[in-house]
Design a protein around this nucleic acid. Structure first.
Lengths: 216, 216
DNA sequence: CCCTATACCTAATGCCATTAGAAATAGCGA
DNA sequence: TCGCTATTTCTAATGGCATTAGGTATAGGG
């Protein structure tokens, strides 16, 4: 009485691994990053939970892989934005809106990257390397804006960058907490964006008009 | 062979309940809000886990009580700040620094109140009532600053208030994520506060000096 | 055609939240 | 003073979780 047995190499290692990651992201999107369960992942990919250990050393390793991929994706998008320079006054607004849109389109990645929703989870060194690059990119972006005269804060580049990040992150975080249903571009926090950009321009460029000579 | 049995009413209901709340806050502070475990709470107060159900209907009910207490505490502190009016230019800075200090001194309360670290936990209606009052308080505070001429944004009060909250929250959130070890007043985000206040004054009060007539 | 590494499984351990139900006692009314 | 009852605690059990140990079938290379 031999039982029906499924083939043991169903799609190839890389494909199965990808399916596991997709299932994990799906659960995090539906239930929250902290609600990820390996049993539930296994159910969705048609496996038993222990089998997942062929693909990931632990639940944290799965979190870590999603973290790394998310960071990679965000950086790729920022670099894409960079390639369409857009140094006009709309450029800063575009950066802020891009950050907010990323959170709207990839809430599970945003949460994992920029909030700390999983007790005990710290991204691995390898994943953090990806994250290091992000701040550097953001610094370069602000530098570009300063050089183009789009902003001119009178502060060191690092502090100028940090203030912009504080605003982007504050807007996004509050939107997620207070208006979880509002889509990209919608809601009272998105409505704030033009005012915030105007505020920065008013404070940082009182005489108005870009300075061709660059920053400092 | 009668076994040694501890007295059954050890401290009175209210006292035991308080001890449970204290133990829960302690765990959240040490391990993160999402890492709360009723078994661990029980261990710390010298009970077995099921006994806790005499005091709280569920783990979520315990979260909810801590949420309510935290909201109460924060509001009480804001109202205290209100009673020492301080309408000078330092007043806005004091509000921002108070928010950051609250997060530093009560990280478990801050996380529970202003982040969403527990999948499936939504504060009860009763607790949310406490939270409603908070935004109203914040609005009143901004109103007071506008009336005193400390700020004069040219925007509706609600949007002015929201921008201030975006900044407070962005600063605090980034500080917690990137400089968890920095104490109150320390670190690069705290260093940003005076610059941000100056930025708001520069953008919102270009001709400088308060306007005795109040806002609008 | 066999051998072995691979990808899956079941069983088990020890956490967790929660429920059911039993026992002990404190403090009240008689 | 005695016993009753509400209160507080317990043990036992259920079902979910992450993880480990160890077994089995098969795909693909020799």
């Amino acid at each position: 009485m031999t039982s029906l047995v499924l083939p043991h190499r169903r799609h190839g290692f890389a494909v199965t691994r990808q399916q596991i990651i997709e299932a994990a992201r799906e659960i995090m999107r539906e239930e929250g990053v902290g609600a990820l369960s390996l049993h539930e992942v296994a159910r969705r990919v048609g496996m038993k939970a222990p089998s997942l250990y062929t693909y990931f050393e632990s639940k944290h390793a799965l979190y870590d892989e999603v973290f790394r991929l998310g960071m990679q994706k965000y950086r790729a998008e920022v670099e894409e934005l960079e390639r369409n320079p857009g140094d006009g006054p709309g450029s800063l607004e575009a950066s802020i809106r891009h950050y907010m849109r990323f959170a709207d389109e990839n809430p599970e990645l945003y949460s994992l990257l920029f909030e700390r929703p999983v007790p005990g989870f710290e991204p691995s060194a390898a994943s953090m390397a990806e994250a290091e690059g992000l701040l550097a990119d953001a610094g370069a972006r602000v530098n570009a804006l300063l050089d183009a005269g789009t902003i001119r804060s009178g502060l060191p580049v690092d502090q100028t960058r940090d203030i912009v990040i504080v605003l982007m992150h504050g807007l996004t975080s509050l939107k997620r907490a207070n208006e979880p249903e509002a889509g990209a571009g919608e809601g009272r926090f998105d409505a704030l964006v033009p005012h915030i950009v105007a505020l920065l321009r008013a404070a940082w460029m009182p005489e108005d008009g870009p300075v061709p000579g660059g920053h400092q």
